[in-house]
Structure formats: C-alpha cells, structure tokens
Nucleic acid binder design. Structure first.
Length: 259
DNA sequence: ATGGTTGAAACTCAA
C-alpha cells in the first residue's frame, strides 16, 4: 500500500491540483500539511467522491493538518501532547487498517522556526522534543507507526543543492538537525534515504528567486517508519513532476510503498 | 542591502 505526505500550502487554492494528483497516483493514505483552513472549511466533498475518508485538524489561516485514507481511519487523535496552551494545529494521527495491516499514521507539520534565536525558534526545538517524547511512547507498543510530514529540517548537506545558502536558516541549524537525529535514533527509518542514498533528492523549492528553475531545492518532507513498518518497505520516492503543474505548492508529495 | 513569491485574510503575517 502507498502512503504519501504533501504540504499543500492552502487546500482551497490547491483543491484541483490535489484531485488531479489523487486521480493520477491513487495513494491509499495521504498526510497533508498547511491546509490553512478550519475543520469546516476543508473541501471533504470532492475528496470523498474519489473514495477517501477524511480526518482534519484544521486552523484558520495558518498551519492545519489532515489525513486522507481509502481505508477507515479509527482512533483519531488531534494535537501534540501536552495539549494545554498550544493553539497551533500541527499533528493528527489515526489507525488505518489497510493491506499492510494496522498502522498508526501521523501527519506532522513541524514549526519553521525562523529567525534563529527567536521565540519561534525555541518553539520549534520544543515541538520536536515533544514529538520525540510522544513517539517514544508510541514506539514502545512495537506496532507499525508511520510519521510523515513537513519536518522543516534539512538533515544533511546532501539534502540541499546549496547547503552553504542555508547556514543562517532555522531549517539547517545544528540544533534542529540534532533534534531530528535524536528523533530518528529512537528507531525510525528515513524511508526515502533508505531507498536512495544519493544527493539531489528535494521536496521543496522556494517560490522566490527562481529556486525551481535553478533547482535550488531542499529535502525537508520526510516519512519516518518504525521498525515494524520498515520491515515492509518496498519503495519510496518523490513526485517531483507535480512542481511543474500550474499553480504548484512549494512542496511536492513524498511517498512510500509498503508490502 | 534588497528583492524576489505565495496564501489567507484583512489593510499584514507566515513561510
């Protein structure tokens, strides 16, 4: 079964693009980020018409995550513990029973964290630590767990066309990269990296300064697999061609194929 | 040093 993640950058502005991609790829599960709408603003109708169930954790204007699934989504959990005082909608998870078995699938949108040293940067690092705490508890269940999303972290130099360009950016700070490594080290497999260890695989190109035309890209959207899920990893990749479509998101979909 | 772009929502912010 195919599980994908896509930072859509505004579901209302991108619904036709999403439907086109769903028809083309027909993934079993899609983790979405930056839907930028409240729950009742999500265009569930046309998505359900394509055979998907929908779970949404929305927010007006900013952030917002969702899960689409051809299989029923059970035990949906919204938000990242501790929930008190955190108004930002950046995590949703649910149990999906598909051809590969029962998987807890999480759609995660890590904070951007710029500029470095700001309150936002501190929130980013704290959020990654909270996610690490949450996943540590989940991993103890020794069940299939897939955390897919926009991590807003460039893990290594080969994950950027021009790494030196990013040294003053929160996405590439030693602190952010260390936090991502600490999360991964709990036992996750970075699916795309496990399949292909070469450079030049990017998931995001800025709208500005001709980043796409210059292939000035970075790999910040990741699919992390628990050991039980990694055992079933067959293939992984990036739907790069979607960036050539009209009115594209600045991110492209990333996917895994599990047996 | 600045500008370059986009979405959502509102006369600006976040990315």
């Amino acid at each position: 079964m195919r599980i994908a993640t896509w930072n859509i950058n505004g579901i209302k502005a991108r619904i036709d693009t999403l439907l086109r991609w769903l028809r083309e790829v027909s993934p079993d599960v899609v983790c979405m980020q930056e839907i930028k709408c409240p729950d009742d603003g999500f265009p569930t109708g046309p998505i359900e018409e394509l055979g998907y169930n929908v779970a949404v954790h929305g927010q007006k204007g900013f952030n917002g995550v969702a899960i689409l699934s051809k299989h029923p989504i059970e035990d949906v959990r919204k938000g990242l513990p501790p929930l008190d005082g955190d108004q930002q909608a950046r995590l949703i998870s649910g149990l999906v029973a598909g051809p590969s078995g029962v998987i807890r699938v999480g759609s995660a949108y890590m904070p951007n964290g710029n500029p470095i040293g700001s309150e936002k940067f501190a929130y980013k690092l704290a959020w990654l630590e909270r996610l690490t705490d949450w996943t540590r508890a989940e991993l103890e269940k020794e069940e299939m767990l897939v955390i897919a999303g926009d991590y807003n972290v460039i893990p290594a130099p080969l994950d950027a066309k021009y790494p030196e360009f990013w040294v003053t950016d929160a996405l590439y700070t030693p602190e952010a990269r260390m936090a991502f490594r600490k999360l991964s080290a709990l036992g996750f497999t970075d699916a795309v990296r496990a399949i292909d260890d070469r450079g030049g695989i990017y998931t995001f190109w800025d709208y500005q300064a001709g980043a796409w035309q210059r292939n000035n890209g970075i790999r910040i959207d990741h699919i992390l697999l628990s050991p039980e899920a990694a055992d079933k990893l067959c293939q992984a990749g990036v739907d790069r061609h979607v960036r050539t479509w009209e009115k594209p998101s600045d991110h492209v979909p990333v996917w895994v194929e599990l047996s």
